[in-house]
Amino acid sequence: MTAVSAATADVPLLEAKDISASYGHVHALKPTSLHVAEGELVTILGPNGAGKTTLMRALTRLTPSRGNVFFRGRDVSRLSTNRLARCGIVMVQEGRGLFSQMTVRENLVVGGYLHPGDIDTHLQAVFELFPRLKERLDQLAGTLSGGEQQMLAIGRALMAKPQLLMLDEPSLGLAPRVASEILGTLRELNRRGIGILLVEQKAPLALKLAQRVYVISLGRIVVELKTDEIESHHDLARYYLH
């Protein structure tokens, strides 16, 4: 595969330079750079074990990393995970990361931890996006269906007022129709101006949403291109579109 340049926006919302991470002696993520522009939806594709989740964890400092991360030009490389959330970088983890023994309402309220004065307003906004959550408010999160859990995970992240929403495999384990619904919601959020960095196994769905794509392999980004350019790369098109 060959690296292909894509147009970059003037002011990146997120910019990572030579970010890398290791688990002991295993270099799970080799020095890698990427960026997400304001209001952009970018997807990261790659086979299992390529380093997608490690990249997301390194960007949010859940996994210790080297290299630099800039958010709207500000160096946030040394900020802790919770400080990054304060800046506006919020991630929905693979597996959703719900507080399963807490109710839907409590999950959402904890999501609004940083904005305690705006809880009711944000709750209404989440309910407009996911009306089903309003019907399940007093239900334990762990008892929701897979699709509802993912709605809650995204709704909870929205309570934190993200400027960049990162999602790791949001359609994992969901029926195709539900997955499509969830990814459609991401498109809507992106339309509202939230930058999105999406790791997704269902490549055809993700590529319909994204403006740009990074392909990661063996812990390194090997391709960067606009999604409308992917057809011209036959090997990628064959692998990810069909």
């Binding site: 859940l62 995970t81 959330a85 304060r86 990361g97 507080f99 909870r156 934190a160």
Partner: peptide
């Protein structure tokens, strides 16, 4: 229940 998820939401 999930300290990583809590951190990601800004909980110190």
């Amino acid at each position: 229940q999930n300290s990583e998820a809590a951190q990601l939401l800004g909980v110190p």
